[in-house]
Design a protein around this nucleic acid. Structure first.
Length: 111
DNA sequence: GCAATGACGCTCT
DNA sequence: CAGAGCGCCATTG
């Protein structure tokens, strides 16, 4: 049932430019409530040619979960900055400001 | 087939 | 407010 990946990618692709979302939110919208891990795992399996804006996905803490050792946390921060998202030096992103206003059947972010 | 790990999230201390 | 522990499922060795 690896199809869940496709669902996850579909959600991530819906994230507007200049906005970010969290793994938990993506998981919920993807129909995998609580399976935020799978979201991260699915993204980890992404290919360099993937058109999925994975860099717009961060953890619930509003910080980039990646590490320069494991993934390209620097690249993610760079991409976000390129879209107008100000990433803190520690990789923190104000979800209250850049949090994706989900226009879906299951909104759950701030009003 | 078994065991360990992982781009997370939430609750408890 | 900060830190630690446990739970979820799939992938990999």
């Amino acid at each position: 049932v690896t199809g869940s990946h496709a669902r996850i990618y579909a959600i991530v692709r819906r994230v507007p430019r200049g906005r970010v979302t969290t793994y938990g939110t993506v998981a919920r919208l993807a129909g995998l409530p609580g399976q935020a891990r799978l979201v991260g795992y699915a993204l980890s399996a992404l290919d360099a040619s993937s058109t999925v804006p994975w860099h717009r996905v961060i953890n619930a803490q509003g910080r980039i979960s990646l590490t320069d050792a494991n993934g390209s946390r620097t690249e993610q921060a760079l991409r976000l900055a390129r879209e107008g998202v100000r990433v803190s030096a520690s990789g923190a992103v104000p979800l209250a400001t850049y949090g994706w206003r989900v226009a879906s059947p299951r909104p759950r972010r701030a009003t």
